[in-house]
Amino acid sequence: MAVVIVQFAPEEHLGAVHAALEAAALDTRVFRAWDGELPDGLVGVDALVVTGGPATAGGVELLRRALAAEVPVLGVGPGAQSLAVAAGGAAGRHQAAGSGSGSLRVTPASDSDPLFAGATPQPSRVRYPLGGAGEPPAGAVALVRDEHSRAQAFRIGGSAWGTADLEPWRQQVPARFAALVAARAEHTATRTFFTQRAAAWEDRFAHQTPAYEAAVARMRLGRGQTALDLGCGTGRALPALRAQVGGEGTVLGVDVTHAMLTAAARIGRLACGQLLLADCARLPLPPGSVHGIFAAGLVDHLPRPRTALREWARVSAADGTLLLFHPSGRAERAARHGRPLSPDDPLAEPNLRPALDATGWRLTVYDDAARHFLARAVRAR
């Protein structure tokens, strides 16, 4: 994994960004766009820093893909204008060539921004590009304006920032961006992988729906209860969960990838339950509020399975049910990937049982069959 820096002219210097990324132990890869270098895609990319202007079509397309996958982005100088264009805004309207001078003011919205909270420009009166950071699209958050009310820094969603000039903020913004990139690296990899596959996911795996229905049936939930599908993807388990808890029950589908939830909504899964964008290890739910948790193909992809299992126990009611499932057995999956079964696999019973015991669960069923994997646990009292 690495932070990709796309530079569009040899004279561009991002020393503060390089230093901050290095201090956060993040690798960097520099692409020299003036020599025709651009990344092939976003696989293996923790974050993107872009300095090129809105006329660079390749840079704009790369930014669009990064925005869709919620890869952290920092657009600097003309790169901020490229970011604005990629998000549906426009490049800045220059009154004349070159730069102007004046004062910058932070907006109230900056008070809660991960990068600009508490920031003050150093010095307070600065030179800035006359075109500003471009004209961000509707919904973007203006963080810094100049004395003519032009945006000099903005945020799009929760993962992309543009600033006309990094120099006034060099004491804070680069370091905060690097810290944010490091903290989100695990989710960034997940979102990048699944975003590009979300549109075709349901059609590709629709044949597995009967296996999901059979697995959900083994949860034995009651009508009126609350069921949670973690890492729900396009929501293949949601109809079966709704059937178990009935119309008076509650069904929640949780995923960390926005594109997957969008695909789920497009194929009608909102009729089965609510969709929630959230980290499965930090659920925005009160303690004891869930009666059944379904998690398909999730545990063995988590960097800290016990942390997640402990969180799931927190939100589970007494005697709540946890069902871990995969439509392929462990041996079948290993063979498909050309590797032997690993003794370190968190789903191997010698690993899974103590992990459940230590996090508030009691394993009641362990079924690692040729064509499916299923483990059922109940919330320990």
Rank of each mutant, 00 (worst) to 15 (best):
R218T: 13
R218P: 13
M219G: 07
R220V: 06
R220W: 02
L221V: 07
L221R: 03
G222L: 14
G222S: 09
G222P: 06
R223C: 14
G224R: 04
G224F: 07
G224K: 03
Q225W: 01
T226M: 04
T226D: 06
A227M: 05
L228M: 09
L228R: 03
L230M: 04
L230Y: 07
G231K: 14
G231R: 06
C232D: 02
G233I: 01
G233Y: 01
G233H: 09
G233K: 04
G233P: 12
G235C: 02
R236L: 07
R236Y: 04
R236H: 10
A237P: 01
A237W: 01
A237I: 05
L238V: 01
P239M: 06
A240W: 04
A240G: 00
R242D: 01
R242A: 09
V245E: 06
G247F: 05
G247M: 11
G247R: 11
E248Y: 02
E248D: 15
G249Y: 05
G249D: 13
G249V: 13
G249F: 10
T250Q: 02
V251E: 12
L252C: 08
G253Q: 06
V254K: 10
D255E: 11
D255W: 15
V256F: 10
T257E: 05
H258C: 05
H258K: 14
A259F: 08
A259S: 09
A259T: 09
L261A: 11
A263V: 01
A263D: 02
R266C: 02
R266L: 00
I267Q: 15
I267D: 12
I267C: 15
G268F: 12
G268H: 13
G268I: 02
R269S: 14
L270G: 08
C272N: 15
Q274G: 04
Q274P: 03
L275W: 13
L275F: 10
L276S: 11
L277N: 11
A278Y: 09
C280V: 14
R282S: 15
L283T: 08
P284S: 02
P284F: 05
L285N: 10
L285K: 15
L285Q: 10
L285D: 11
G288W: 11
S289H: 04
S289A: 14
S289E: 07
V290L: 08
V290G: 04
V290N: 04
H291L: 05
G292E: 06
I293V: 03
I293P: 05
F294K: 00
F294M: 03
F294G: 01
A295N: 06
A295H: 01
A295C: 08
A296Y: 00
L298D: 14
L298W: 04
V299T: 03
V299M: 00
V299P: 00
H301E: 06
H301G: 01
H301R: 11
L302Q: 04
L302E: 14
L302R: 00
P303D: 01
R304S: 07
